[in-house]
Amino acid sequence: MPAVWTQPITWEVDQLVTEGQLNEQVRDNLEWLKNPPRAAAALAANIATTSTAFVDAPGLALTLTTAGGALVVGFTGVAGNAAGATVVFDLVVDGVSQGGLDGVVGTNVGVVPLAFVWLVEGLAAGAHTVKLQWKVSSGTGTLYGGGTAFLRFKPQLWAREV
């Protein structure tokens, strides 16, 4: 069973500390800190798109339930398009674009490694969706996940409450 975070008590002089409080305040909160809500997704095959508007990158979406803290989201992968044409990636949390018009990271010089680590603050406690979206300026963008010799990489999207 996943640990549950409980707001720490402000202790007072002579306050009786019960077994339940110790378990909740010390054991459970430490367990939560050691094992906070997190999720990850990786690809085992290439994906490709010609979309000139941001669309979901198949297989790279997460859901996780947080206790109200910030999220750190990371992505790593190798992607490319024909030289001169862009392929760009955006991070979308609960339907909200984090990067805006042209996303968070991208390339227009062929096949390159791409990565980001992104801090998402101001999220309420509860369930959240984290998605990677992508688009191209023209041509075909490919995120390499195992379908091309010497480009058999493993793109990963992950998120963790901090």
Binding site: A45, I47, A48, T49, T50, S51, T52, A53, V55, P58, G59, K135, V136
Partner: peptide, 10 residues
């Protein structure tokens, strides 16, 4: 048309 995407044979 905004584009097409391919993944997992679909």
């Amino acid at each position: 048309v905004l584009g097409v995407s391919a993944a997992d044979g679909g």
